[in-house]
Design a protein around this nucleic acid. Structure first.
Lengths: 196, 196
DNA sequence: ATTATATCTTAACACCGTCAAGATTAATTT
DNA sequence: AAATTAATCTTGACGGTGTTAAGATATAAT
């Protein structure tokens, strides 16, 4: 009465999603390829048909989570005007909130080696981190309308990113309790940064 | 002619320092207790006389590195006046430079579970992260002289910390090249944050 | 129907964290 | 100084882990 098929059919995606479940339940320390395989009801070595090694699966998982992150940033500014500088604040708050809602993801996403960014923002050597591209594009759209030079905007992007990223880092540290006072704090800090 | 003694004599400290060497050479992924033991020329199980487990050694290593970090922050403002707001900028730059000079340490120090901070800055539940305490004290000293309220200063501490921490995070990412242009960038970003 | 390709299993390897038992040395007590 | 206690280190073992080679099974292509 074993209806288990020899071929899983959708193992690659199953491994990625089961991997993320395991990550959320046990943390990256207790994450193991064999456990993920077991969750998908396949043998220990089965993942090697789809991923080069453990690191390769972890990177696929990071891509998956990064996609969710990008989606949230994108949604945060839907319907907002690029004429309004406050739209940047909206995306910044969304950036921080993503990690407040998924604290485990902060360390996971930003643990090396994964993210490559091109802070010079020229064409050669693009970033492999779409959320940064979203942040970048929005800044150029909004701030060029405000009359800032490209060079100035580049600096402001780094400043903005550092601020929201740093706030996310702090907010997700152990012992930090996120309450309604954070909302105002975040709003104030990002907005202040804005008016340069 | 084996002059190796049964008792090492200074094994605990040796494990911590060899552990840091190993970390710097191979990264946290390829770090193993057995390798550290081998570096100290003792058996696999020897570390268990000094540390509860692997995690316990890693935390001791973090304390060790955190101590170096604190020392650098402390040195950065020696001889500087607490009357001069620029002293805060000096410490901020030192914060970032520490991780630019030791990129591996950023992920290592801030990977959980280690750092516990008390952002409310009241007495119960102090932070276990001395660098944060240094940052905090300096802000209170300098900014209260400028006439800011304690409540306002608390917010400014978080804002400052987020900024330098975020800049450190970005500066230590893969693919980011640190050159002289960063000096000015950092200076400008921190200073701007200052005048609120 | 045959062949080729993709996917999965089994079995094995070296490495790892950890522990129990015992050996050796150092510290303390008598 | 001798005996006892405590601290430190070794040996040997356990189950878990990443990874690979060889082979089994199913799907796709011919």
């Amino acid at each position: 009465m074993n209806d288990k098929k020899y071929h899983h059919g959708n193992l690659k995606q199953c491994l990625i999603e089961a991997g993320i479940d395991l990550l959320n339940e046990e943390g990256e320390n207790h994450f193991s390829l064999r456990k993920v395989a077991a969750l998908c009801d396949v043998s220990n070595a089965a993942p090697y048909s789809h991923f080069k090694n453990k690191e390769d699966l972890l990177e696929a998982m990071k891509k998956y989570v990064t996609e969710q992150f990008s989606q949230q940033l994108y949604n945060a500014i839907q319907g907002e005007s690029v004429e309004d500088p406050n739209t940047i604040v909206k995306m910044g708050k969304s950036y921080i909130l993503f990690f407040i809602n998924h604290p485990q993801y902060f360390e996971f996403l930003f643990s090396r080696p994964c993210i490559r960014v091109n802070l010079n923002m020229n064409d050669d050597g693009k970033s492999n981190f779409p959320p940064f591209e979203l942040l970048k594009e929005l800044h150029f759209k909004v701030l060029s309308k405000c009359g800032f030079s490209d060079e100035k905007i580049k600096d402001m992007i780094i400043s903005s990113w550092a601020t929201v990223h740093g706030l996310a880092a702090i907010a997700t540290m152990e012992g930090v309790i996120y309450d309604e006072s954070w909302e105002n704090k975040i709003e104030a800090i990002i907005s202040n940064k804005e008016k340069n």
